[in-house]
Nucleic acid binder design. Structure first.
Length: 648
DNA sequence: TGCGGATCCCTTTTT
DNA sequence: GGGATCCGCA
């Protein structure tokens, strides 16, 4: 490859030598170990542009990344560098890629009539139905709750381990119920088939199956995607790593990018061993390390290097920066949770006065509920914010209600949605709903069957409004927004009767209608609501009023991955919260918590604050939590300053 | 069969 | 503080 083939793009000015090497790398396997803030996205972006510039068909490049937003942003930036051809690159998450591919080959795997993707909540509901039907164990003991069952099943898939082993290792107290639990899983699998449901894990399983069992399909896909790139490879699980290998097997043109020190998804089967083993999977892998950090000032890097030093990460990296100046991070002890919130509010206000935009600050935490108190204080202080992660918009009951009405039209076999829709009508519970569902299904006319199917029940009149709605939906031409409005006007009276806080929920629904207006096909909309749901709770803080105004970001650490801010606050740096009590038994879990703190701290460019509220009572262990996170132990004062919040 | 009330539990992270 | 479950009444 001639060194300056791309005269149009100033590769030399924009990239350092290591980045340049990765960008210019020709065919074959490439592993890029990209430390935090080392220009990973930049490298991927330039490489996409470079390939396209050299004449590679953009549609033959597959870019798998962690969120759709991340891949869209990369392709957008590549388009700016080169031209609009870069938008044709195939990109998305593993799950959305699986969805698109499986829809294309649906007939091959026996889904001639298509399929419905179900989210975690739907999966739990289906498991719940089966669980209820099972005979109780008899010995007076309870079966695991449906959410636990869903976790167990998912873990077995994502770690590719037998159900029995997962039970024995992680749920020892349920291991004597292995037979019943196995039966529940068989039933669950059977019913998903019956109703044409695929859960998150099934998307990966079926894609994997498609690639292993149908050699012709695999060859077609391998021929189509001649360049494969995977971002955040350290967070892939065994199936995902296999999928990458199967796709790349024919040509070995595969570039994976990641950082073993930032692996934080072990709970869903991710194994950072994948990134360590990549060179073994692909003989002759070229390894490039990106070690210059462009994000943070030196004192922050001194701290984060120290934090990760004691971790058992395998690829050693030594991050350095040319950005000097600034103060060491600070650990602030506060007397309880509310003082923590007030400290953050005070500091945010100070920074704002000094000229830092709210957009450039973030508050990060381990779990969604850790920010509840802070949200109250921010509202009180009139500081607009948006919250990312934790509870999702699409998980709230009123959103699910509205979507369920659309789902019975799109997929009349969807028993879960029928139950939900019918259950909203007075005097109809699960039993009656199932009877009506069975009658409609036997009538085999789609959702419209409700209008003509013979029903044996007393209060037929109660069904009339729903019949009218379904009639109107099936009569109207496919116009997603119009259907949304029809359901909305039907549902509004139900919403008002059901919830005291209906004004807030109604605003959420209006937001949902606005999102719907962007879609042309109902199926696409419904799939996206499962695969890429809006990540922020829309009605949070004052941000909703003026979406364009600057606002503070509150985020779980998981959702903050890959992002950066001028100033970052990390809440609850309290031993027992972070790391959490439950992670303390298993050294691997504890290591993951450490990496999580590393990810959080490396988001900061200029200022980094830890807050540690003390004297917190932990109910699980009946103990008082008083010490800062063990990960901060032994870090000298010149690397991490310590302070007390004045109203101590 | 539906539904409201009482009592028990555990309480992360995401596609 | 919210499920899941159980119980008693309509």
């Amino acid at each position: 490859m001639p060194p300056e083939a791309g005269a149009g793009i100033a590769y030399h000015q924009a990239l350092n030598p290591a980045q340049l090497e990765a960008v210019r790398f020709g065919d074959g396997p490439l592993l890029v170990l990209a430390g935090a803030g080392s220009g990973k996205t930049r490298t991927l972006t330039y490489r996409v542009a470079r390939l396209v510039e050299e004449g590679v068909d953009p549609r033959s490049i597959l870019l798998l990344s962690f969120t759709r937003k991340a891949s869209q942003e990369m392709l957008q930036r590549a388009s700016l560098l080169l031209d609009a051809r870069c938008r044709d690159v195939a990109g998305g998450t593993f799950h959305s890629f699986a969805n698109a591919t499986l829809r294309r080959y649906a007939a091959v795997i026996g889904f001639e009539q298509g399929f419905t993707i179900i989210d975690r909540g739907d999966a739990e509901d289906l498991i719940g139905i089966i669980r209820k039907e099972m005979d109780p164990p008899g010995d007076g003991r309870q079966l695991p709750r449906k959410s636990t069952l869903a976790t167990i099943f998912s873990r077995a898939v994502n770690k590719q381990r037998p159900l029995e082993d997962v039970l024995y290792d992680d749920y020892g107290h349920f291991s004597d119920m292995v037979d019943t639990i196995t039966t529940i899983r068989e039933q669950y699998t059977r019913r998903k088939r019956e109703h044409h449901f695929l859960d998150y894990d099934d998307l990966l399983i079926h894609l994997h199956l498609l690639l292993t069992e149908y050699e012709a399909v695999r060859q077609r896909l391998a021929a189509k995607y001649r360049y494969i790139m995977v971002d955040e490879y350290q967070d892939t699980n065994p199936i995902q790593a296999d999928i990458v290998s199967l796709l790349a097997d024919a040509h070995h043109n595969v570039m994976v990018v990641g950082d073993d020190a930032q692996s934080i998804y072990a709970f869903r089967g991710a194994d950072y061993q994948n990134i360590l083993d990549f060179p073994k999977r692909f003989q002759g892998t070229r390894i490039v390390k990106l070690e210059e950090n462009y994000r943070s000032l030196q004192p922050i890097l001194d701290f984060t290097n120290r934090l990760i030093e004691s971790a058992d990460a395998q690829y050693s990296k030594c991050l350095f920066t040319r950005r000097h100046g600034g103060l060491p991070p600070v650990l602030v002890m506060t007397a309880g949770e509310n003082a923590q919130s007030r400290y953050v509010v005070r500091e945010v206000a100070r920074l704002r006065r000094e000229g830092t935009s709210l957009d450039r600050m973030a508050i990060l935490f381990r779990a969604g509920f850790h920010a509840f108190d802070l949200e109250l204080e921010l509202n009180r202080a009139g500081i607009p914010f948006k919250k990312v992660g934790g509870f999702k918009f699409t998980e709230s009951a009123h959103i699910k209600d509205l979507l369920a009405h659309l789902r019975i039209v799109a997929a009349p076999d969807d028993q879960l949605s029928w139950r939900r829709v019918l259950g909203l009508i007075e005097k109809i519970g699960p039993k009656t709903a199932d009877r009506i569902f069975a009658a409609v299904r036997a009538h085999s006319q789609g959702a419209g069957g409700l209008l003509s199917a013979p029903l044996k029940m007393k209060n037929q009149a109660k069904l009339q409004p729903l019949k009218d709605l379904i009639g109107a939906l099936t009569d109207a031409p496919e116009a997603v927004a119009r259907w949304g409005e029809l359901v909305f006007s039907y549902y509004l009276p139900i919403l008002r009767a059901k919830y005291d806080d209906h004004p807030r929920r109604q605003r959420d629904l209006e937001q949902l209608l606005a999102i719907m207006a962007r879609y042309r096909h109902l199926d696409d909309f419904l799939s996206d609501m499962v695969l890429e749901p809006p990540s922020t709770a829309i009605e949070d803080g004052l941000a909703a009023a003026e979406p364009t105004a600057e606002c503070l970001t509150l985020s779980t650490i998981h959702s903050a991955k890959g992002l950066e801010w001028d100033t970052v606050f990390i809440l609850w740096a309290l031993d027992g919260r972070f790391p959490s009590m439950r992670s303390m038994e298993d050294p691997d879990d504890l290591e993951e918590e450490r990496r999580l703190m590393y990810v959080a701290a490396t988001r900061a460019e200029r200022e980094l604050h830890f807050t540690c509220p003390v004297q917190i009572f932990d109910r699980a262990t009946q103990s008082l939590l008083c010490d800062p996170s063990r990960f901060l132990d032994g870090i000298p004062e010149n690397v991490l300053r310590r302070e007390n919040y004045p109203d101590w």
